[in-house]
């Protein structure tokens, strides 16, 4: 096991897959000569050259469509959209072309593309550089959506996404690229479907994904030490499809659920997980499930306002205590 950073894990997955298959290419803004905004493609330009590591013009819709077209012929493009905020400009090609082409061609064409993007609020980047958009991606038929919460997942999910014949959107996080974690030394493929139990527990399930897994883990620690509540943390690394069986299994065990998301509440992971709980295991519940989420505001620049808009582990703790009638 190597202890490496999230960006290094992503870089390693690129490197291994590009070394294996000459049709694996990557493209995006500043990913080549400049080495990548988050270093996720560091050193690849020097190793694989400009034909396979493409510094693109700032034309998100254009180069995303170009990647989709190339994938029709068996090329496996990994597209980096520098910030998920810019993905709005690429959505026509992701949704109308990549996600639908297999269906509307009756199975003749497929678009095995990987779209990677940094989502989430970093620090004081303002309204147009702080978006969480997983809610938009997870409702599209024909598109898989995964979101790594640690370096092992970042490496293994990208490996699987490149190999999979379906288009996959990978939602990363600006604040997580320097996070360290254990990654297997040998080749490792993380499943694109399912969920991970990040911490086992018995009294309440905390559902998180990407950065909110870490709020949940921290909250579980506090709940255990200070309140004697045993929280299970379920990492929903696959947002489309969501892991119905995993959600059911955990809630059937703990009978309580809190869903923590950095996205805003109306329409999102929280509402979907609660819908699944209702459909799969409503009568297992001892209390109504609760969502912890961002305020529905364009992200403010001001530090205090920004902090107020985004939840953290303390909000998760509060939500659990409320659930147990302790707050």
């Amino acid at each position: 096991m190597a202890n490496i950073m999230y960006w290094e894990a992503i870089q390693r997955a690129h490197d291994e897959e590009m070394a294996r298959d000459p049709l694996v290419i990557c493209m995006g803004e500043d990913i080549g000569v400049a080495g990548g905004t988050y270093k996720a493609t560091k050193g690849l330009y020097e190793k694989y050259g400009p034909l396979r590591v493409m510094d693109t013009p700032i034309s998100e819709g254009g180069f995303t469509g170009l990647a989709v077209g190339a994938s029709f012929l068996g090329v496996r493009p990994i597209v980096e959209i520098m910030s998920v905020n810019f993905a709005w400009l690429a959505m026509d090609q992701m949704f109308n072309s990549a996600a639908k082409v297999r269906y509307m061609s009756g199975g003749q064409l497929t678009a095995p593309c990987v779209f990677r993007s940094a989502g989430g609020a970093a620090h004081q980047l303002g309204a147009q550089h702080s978006a969480r958009m997983e809610k938009v991606f997870m409702g599209i038929a024909g598109l898989r959506v995964v979101t790594p919460s640690n370096p092992k997942q970042a490496y293994g999910l990208l490996k699987s996404a490149i190999r999979c014949d379906d288009p996959v959107f990978i939602n990363e996080h600006e604040l997580m690229y320097n996070m360290k974690g254990e990654v297997p030394d040998g080749e490792y493929f993380h499943p694109l479907e399912g969920s991970d139990i990040a911490r086992a527990g018995t009294d309440v399930t905390l559902f998180g994904y990407n950065i909110s897994v870490h709020w949940c883990l921290k909250a579980a620690e506090i709940l255990d030490k200070q309140y004697g509540i045993s929280a299970e943390v379920v990492d929903l690394y696959s947002l489309s499809p969501l892991d119905r069986a995993g959600i059911k299994a955990s809630v059937s065990k703990t009978h309580r659920a809190v869903i923590a998301e950095e996205d805003e509440a109306p329409v999102g992971v929280g509402s979907e997980v609660i819908a699944i709980i209702n459909e799969e295991c409503f009568f297992e519940l001892d209390a109504a499930p609760v969502r912890v989420h961002s305020a529905l505001v364009p992200q403010p620049y001001n530090h205090t306002l920004e902090k107020a808009a985004i939840p953290d582990h303390e909000d998760v703790v509060k939500a659990v205590l409320k659930l147990f009638g302790k707050a």
Partner: peptide
């Protein structure tokens, strides 16, 4: 490689097909 119904949508797809030809 198909008919597409978003006006202008096939432009980048065509360039992508050409990119694949170039690579292969």
């Amino acid at each position: 490689m198909g008919g597409y119904a978003l006006v202008g949508g096939p432009f980048p797809l065509a360039a992508g097909i050409a990119k694949a030809i170039q690579l292969k």
